[in-house]
């Protein structure tokens, strides 16, 4: 089993947090994982992206050049990462912020209004969890429950009610996959 993922969006949308969470979830499921962020002149409001690999075999490079799944959370990310998706792969598009139609016909496109769903749940910050819920269900690479288990381990300062809300967002996302 090999799943190469790219997540991309504005700095502040939880792109890096989502990637770290996926990697930790892979560890919980006894898989080999790697996480690699874009780094350097990154800032809130700028663009940020990360690569995650979850595999049963050894991971050769943490830099994912042709991802099985791409999650794009803002407009510039769609332009940059849509062409990279492996043929037959999955593109998860946050339609709350992306109005452009994806062009590729050889991949599966899943459109989800992540921000609206997060707003309905009462906290805009959990929009990245909605996207991860879609990812987990659509790919079957990781169990939603495992992501829930990883949450308090990665973010030790989160209050139980906030973790609860994040898990709710994951489940909402899963429904839309």
């Amino acid at each position: 089993m090999y799943q190469g993922i790219r997540i991309s969006g504005f700095g502040g949308q939880g792109v890096i947090s989502a990637g770290v969470l996926l990697a930790y979830t892979g560890i919980i499921e006894n898989k080999n994982v790697s996480f690699f962020p874009s780094y350097g002149a990154e800032m809130r409001g700028g663009t940020a992206n990360c690569s995650v690999v979850i595999a049963s075999d050894e991971v050769d490079t943490p830099i994912v050049s042709s991802p099985d799944t791409v999650i794009v959370l803002n407009e510039p990310s769609l332009a940059k990462f849509e062409p990279m998706v492996k043929p037959g792969g999955i593109l998860i598009v946050n339609t709350s912020l992306i109005k452009t139609e994806p062009k590729r016909k050889d991949i599966k496109v899943i459109k989800v209004p992540c921000n609206e769903i997060a707003d309905k749940l009462g906290n805009a910050k959990v929009m990245n969890m909605v996207a991860l819920g879609v990812f987990a269900k659509a790919t079957g690479a990781l169990a939603i429950e495992s992501i829930g288990k990883a949450l308090p381990k990665v973010y030790k300062k989160l209050k139980p009610e906030v973790i609860e809300l994040n898990i709710k967002a994951l489940n909402e996302g899963a429904k839309l996959a």
Partner: peptide
Amino acid sequence: DGTLGQMMEG
């Protein structure tokens, strides 16, 4: 190298 420095693994 920068890859090893920046990447996360178990």
